[in-house]
Amino acid sequence: MGRFPAKSDYEDMRNARISENQARLASLGLQKTISELRSITTPVKSPRRKCMKVDYSSLPLRRSSRLKKVNPSSSDGSISVDRSLRFSSDSDTEFPNGDISEKNEKRPANSPLVDWRLCRSTELSSERRCMSKGRGSVYDPVFGICCHFCRQKKLCGEEDCMRCNDLDVDQPCLGKTDCSVCHSSNGVLCRACLKVRYGEEMEEVRNNKQWKCPHCIEEEGSKPYWICNSSFCLKKRKMVPTGIAIYRAREMGYESVAHLLMDELLRADQR
């Protein structure tokens, strides 16, 4: 069996240095053990609280006055439910100018009824008039009418539009279309979207009292493959929205995006 080699001079020097360091630490009073240091640094854990189960079935439900619809000024605590003008049970609505208008009357889509309670903070100023005839340039959440395609709720830029210039809610917006059949928001298109997406001019549509939106034309079947190409309607058909397709349509010789889609659907059906 082999013997362990004798200690080298390096090990002797190392052991001497360790002894010297220990003596120095002892002289400085730093000979605390690891357990003592851990006892100082370890935080004391607070005792866990026992969970107390509360029987909520025996307690009354808490509701705010807004949800209760309770009038605090009323002596009998009567309930007053806030409803919009469209869902109010009253048959008439009084406007600030003193006129009484039937809420149930069929109004054109480009002349919707305005909730005057939302107009209290709106300044009725002629400076709000926009100068762009395309899609308008002034966003107005109260008086603006949303376009079905671009979904921009802006005031139109037509020079003779009394609704957008003078904020006369009894007048239709001349910069938005209205379907003669459905009178719904599906037939509301601004001048730019009407031209780019469907190839029609606003003046021609305005003079045509029998104008129909693409939805109604599709339902009656008078113009095959003529569909609404808004992103909403294309997604319902499980079709990919076209995006900015007017440049591709014009390069291919089509009048609008709707004409391009009509031709593509026709060719797909003939395959």
Rank of each mutant, 00 (worst) to 15 (best):
Met1Arg: 14
Arg3Ile: 09
Ala6Ser: 11
Ser8His: 08
Asp9Glu: 11
Tyr10Ser: 12
Arg14Met: 11
Ala16Pro: 02
Ser19Met: 12
Ser19Lys: 15
Leu25Lys: 15
Ala26Met: 07
Ser27Tyr: 09
Leu28Ser: 10
Leu30Tyr: 04
Leu30Met: 13
Leu30His: 09
Leu30Phe: 07
Gln31Trp: 00
Lys32Gln: 12
Lys32Cys: 06
Thr33Arg: 11
Ser35Val: 02
Ser35Lys: 09
Ser39Cys: 01
Thr41Pro: 00
Val44Lys: 15
Lys45Pro: 01
Lys50Gly: 10
Lys50Ile: 08
Val54Arg: 13
Pro60Val: 06
Arg62Ser: 11
Arg63Val: 08
Lys68Met: 12
Val70Lys: 11
Ser75Trp: 01
Ser75Glu: 05
Asp76Ala: 09
Gly77Ala: 07
Ser78His: 02
Ser78Ala: 05
Ser80Trp: 01
Ser80Phe: 03
Val81Glu: 06
Phe87Ser: 15
Ser88Glu: 07
Ser88Arg: 11
Ser88Asn: 04
Ser89Val: 04
Thr93His: 07
Glu94Trp: 08
Asn97Phe: 00
Gly98Asn: 05
Ser101Met: 07
Asn104Trp: 03
Glu105Asn: 08
Lys106Thr: 10
Arg107Thr: 07
Pro108Phe: 07
Asp115Ile: 01
Asp115Gly: 08
Cys119Ser: 15
Arg120Met: 03
Thr122Lys: 14
Glu123Ser: 12
Glu123His: 04
Glu127Asn: 12
Arg128Ala: 09
Cys130Val: 02
Lys133Thr: 12
Gly136Trp: 01
Val138Phe: 10
Asp140His: 05
Val142Arg: 04
Phe143Gly: 04
Ile145Gln: 02
Lys153Ala: 10
Lys153Leu: 03
Leu155Cys: 07
Glu158Ala: 06
Glu158Gly: 03
Cys161Trp: 10
Arg163Asp: 01
Asp168Tyr: 03
Asp170Cys: 01
Gly175Gln: 10
Lys176Trp: 06
Thr177Ala: 06
Val181Ile: 13
Ser184Pro: 05
Asn186Leu: 09
Ala192Thr: 09
Leu194Ile: 03
Val196Ser: 15
Gly199Asp: 12
Glu201Gln: 15
Glu201Trp: 09
Glu203Phe: 10
Val205Tyr: 03
Asn207Pro: 00
Asn208Thr: 06
Trp211Pro: 08
Glu218Ile: 01
Glu219Lys: 13
Gly221Lys: 04
Gly221Met: 04
Ser222Met: 01
Ser222Glu: 07
Lys223Tyr: 02
Pro224Trp: 06
Trp226Ser: 05
Cys228Pro: 05
Ser230Val: 00
Leu234His: 10
Leu234Phe: 05
Lys235Ser: 11
Lys236Met: 09
Met239His: 10
Val240Ser: 13
Ile244Gln: 13
Arg248Ala: 13
Ala249Phe: 06
Tyr254Phe: 14
His259Pro: 00
Leu261Glu: 08
Leu261Met: 13
Met262Leu: 08
Asp263Ser: 02
Leu265Cys: 11
Leu265Glu: 14
Leu266Ala: 14
Leu266Gln: 14
Arg267Met: 08
Ala268Lys: 15
Arg271Gln: 13
